[in-house]
Design a binder for these strands. Structure first.
Length: 463
RNA sequence: GUAGGUAUAGCUCAGUUGGUUAGAGCACCAGAUUGUGGUUCUGGGGGUCGUCGGUUCGAACCCGAUUAUCUACCCCA
């Protein structure tokens, strides 16, 4: 029988040690930022009950849920149950339905909805306003392509139970902190759902807000003509499209854009509110100053419209070939309402660790010490020399130096080759002469120099 | 769901209008070098050319189907 060809599911990846140290650097950096801003860690299960997840991400999102088949279906004792399962299975083959008889769990699609569930379930243990961060994988049955995976990590920070726009300001600062550390210049695009509502209102197409925002969101890709065409095809009136033109065609700085909106949205209360909110965020961000990120008011930004009610954020790298967003977020006025806890406003952002990893890899922008692991390798000659090396290794580790011994008394070339391949910067040789002298031959692998030193001296040099 | 591209050694890829025994680089193993790695030299192991079928005297190459994978659209981190 031929050996089974090993493989992993579509859209998933293995990570080698070399990749993991880089990924950990990304997670550590983001986690440090979260902690610095007072966010607290939580974790939730990889799977949620299917009711928790369905209907939260729109029809599109429901399609992308990885559903988990109920365990041990063949063990259903009840004949009735088996009949139901068979029927449910037939129905599932015909159309995409959620059938608890077959599946009552699904893998989490994002971290926000599980967080909302968490807040409601633990509301009596939580001190509000609650700032939580969460760094865990999520799963989507999407078609994989560049920057898009079926299993990927999100790094979320959300504040719940506070309406203050200071939270939004801080989120922008956190984005700036993280990407400044990564040395990746980014643009933070900011919009506000209330502005979008105001626009829909003043052009007389209040009900078609989703159509309108989805269309103008594509402005970059399909141009003004394309946007107008799509609007018309979706039933937006010619006069409404006409009124929209100055906005779509607009070019200019923040002040000019703001003035245009102010005039245009004069008749819309919600629109004015949106402008005020954006003004506040821009003013505060400018006042504190950003290190490397640039912020931009982008009224074509409309992602996650299904649930965002206030600010909308999206972050793109200004360098590299990845055009999709590497971080996004916004405010939801009623994050937990669906689980029965009313009037809890939340705002948060999500760093796409895997896309940040792709960007950093392309730019090869990692600090030199990120890849450092073992500092010192002991050559193993076996017998009494090997024992002495092992004893010395123990002392070196106690001194806080990451060290290891080649476990087998293999040929010396092989052991040195190993040190080289592992990029271990120092090698210690203890043979008979060193052992009787009570010293260690310490070799610097980069310079090739070696020197007979006492243990104290060795520890001194490596710390 | 729609549209393209690709599939040859562990990895990255060559492979002429279809022609005899399918190649390179890297990686791996051994030796030159029995207490010294990176460079060099020599030798070695590895492939039903994704799978199935068709055309042909003859297919890695042409045709069809199928599977996998990548890219773009939709949507999204």
């Amino acid at each position: 029988m031929a050996a089974q060809k090993p493989s992993i599911p579509k859209g998933t990846r293995d990570f080698t040690p070399q990749e993991m140290v880089r990924r950990n650097y990304i997670f550590d950096t983001i986690r440090a930022v979260f902690r610095r801003y007072g966010y607290l860690p939580i974790e939730t299960p990889a799977m949620e009950t299917i009711e928790t997840l369905t209907g939260k991400y729109g029809d599109e999102g429901d399609q992308l849920l990885f559903k988990i088949l109920n365990s041990r279906p063949h063990e259903a004792r009840d004949e009735n149950q088996k009949v139901k399962m068979r029927e449910a299975f037939e129905r599932t083959l015909e159309q995409n339905t959620n059938t608890p008889v077959l599946t009552e769990k699904a893998l989490r699609y994002d971290l926000t909805v599980p967080f909302a569930r968490f807040v409601v379930q633990h509301q009596h243990e939580i001190t509000f306003p609650f700032r939580r961060y969460q760094i865990q994988p999520v799963w989507r049955a999407d078609r994989p392509q560049k920057g898009r995976y079926r299993e990927f990590y999100q790094c979320d920070a959300d504040v719940i139970g506070s309406n203050s726009l200071l939270n939004e300001v801080e989120l922008v600062q956190m984005i700036d902190d993280a990407f400044t550390t990564f040395d990746v210049p980014v643009t933070v695009k900011i919009n506000n759902r209330k502005i979008l509502s105001g626009i829909a209102e003043v052009i007389g197409e209040k009900e078609r807000i989703v159509t309108i925002t989805v269309a103008i969101d594509k402005l970059d890709k399909i141009g003004i003509e394309g946007v107008n065409k799509e609007l018309g095809e979706n039933g937006v009136s010619a006069s409404a499209i006409e009124k929209l033109q100055p906005l779509i065609a607009f070019t200019g700085d923040y002040a000019a854009k703001r003035e245009l909106l102010r005039n245009m949205l004069a008749g819309s209360e919600v629109g004015q509110k949106g402008i005020e909110e954006v003004d506040f965020i821009f003013a505060k961000v400018a006042e504190a100053g950003l290190q490397s990120a640039t912020v931009e008011l982008d009224i074509t930004l409309a992602r996650g419209l299904n649930y965002y009610t206030g600010a909308i954020f999206e972050v793109k790298a200004n360098v590299g070939s990845l055009s999709s967003s590497i971080c996004g977020g916004g405010r939801y006025d009623d994050l937990t309402g669906i689980f029965g806890l009313k009037d809890m406003s939340g705002v948060g952002i999500s760093f796409g660790a895997d896309r940040i990893y792709d960007v950093l890899n392309e730019l090869n922008r990692y600090p030199a010490d990120v890849t450092m692991s073992t500092q010192l390798l002991f050559i193993n000659f076996g017998d009494e020399d090997g024992n002495e090396a092992f004893r010395t290794l123990h002392k070196v580790r106690r001194a806080g130096i990451a060290a290891e011994i080649y476990p087998d008394a293999a040929k010396i070339q092989k052991q040195f080759k190993y040190a080289d391949a592992r990029q271990i910067p120092f090698v210690a040789v203890i043979g008979e002469s060193e052992r009787t002298a009570g010293k260690v031959m310490l070799k610097n692998m980069q310079s090739g120099e070696q020197e007979l030193v006492a243990l104290d001296e060795l520890i001194n040099r490596l710390t």
